[in-house]
Design a protein around this nucleic acid. Structure first.
Lengths: 144, 144
DNA sequence: TTTGCTGCAAATGCTTTGCATGTAG
DNA sequence: CTACATGCAAAGCATTTGCAGCAAA
């Protein structure tokens, strides 16, 4: 099921690539993994794959359109398997949880705003930073 | 005119800080400078201020709410003097030009989308990536 | 085989920090 | 005088890259 994706992308089907693809695919929707995250999971799964390879493979996947790279904070990039549909993100500032959403109205307003400025939009990043209401979220313990 | 800002922020009024504030203030709207950019302008202005200090001062300014740090690409942060009003950004992928805009409708749709997911929005980043129609823009020379 | 992949370690680029010295308040 | 700033160089991170050995096609 994943091998064709790799072939289509012009990438050889190798253990590391399959395994990394697998890790990304088994992530729940809204699960965004940093290279380190992927690396740790590989170690947990007894896979002997170097961090350098993880970066290389993730970059190749990105170039091939298999994954998308996000920069929710300015430091560490996180990767997400492309499931076809575009979406935006809400990130909880306390527990780092990420939720995804789409809003057609926002999308078209964006294009309109850009057109007004003489830009033709190729891509966009809309990230909302806030606090979620989840029980487990740290700020509920702090401030109530 | 700038000294009160520094005092209010609990920062001593020093040459480097005034000069950096000055550089940011003299930037046109839509001008976003990286630490290196600021540093280069300091050198051009014969100011002997280290790059480390530039970073330190910019971070302090950010903490004080005097400037905002953006990550248009995942690599280099750019800084912008806070002029009070919130706005979003359109970045030209070819010439790096940045334009600013505000759209009330988008803002409220964002809050609504977040609320639907159980988030209370604190901040957001909306960055549109596209191509501008400016004569000087590189892609016009490439593709016509 | 041949081309492309991997592991490892070294290199890179941005940003932060430690420390001794200097200066605003 | 004292607390805080600065310059400089070293350290820190995330990420990329060079290279020699290895594996997919």
């Amino acid at each position: 099921m994943e091998q064709p994706d790799l072939r289509r992308a012009g990438l050889k089907v190798t253990g590391p690539r399959l395994k990394i693809l697998d890790i990304l695919a088994n992530e729940a929707v809204g699960g965004h993994l940093s290279a380190e995250d992927v690396y740790r999971r590989l170690i947990d799964a007894e896979q002997d794959i170097g961090l350098g390879t993880v970066y290389r493979v993730l970059s190749q996947f990105e170039a091939a359109g298999l994954v998308t790279r996000h920069h929710f904070d300015g430091e560490t990039a996180v990767f997400e398997l492309n499931r076809g549909e575009h979406h935006d993100h809400v990130v909880c500032m306390d527990c780092q949880r990420v939720e995804e959403f789409t809003d057609e109205a926002i999308e078209s307003l964006q294009s309109a705003a850009a057109a007004r400025l003489g830009f033709e939009i190729v891509d966009h990043a809309l990230i909302l930073y806030g606090r979620c209401r989840r029980e487990a979220c740290p700020h509920r313990r702090r401030a109530g």
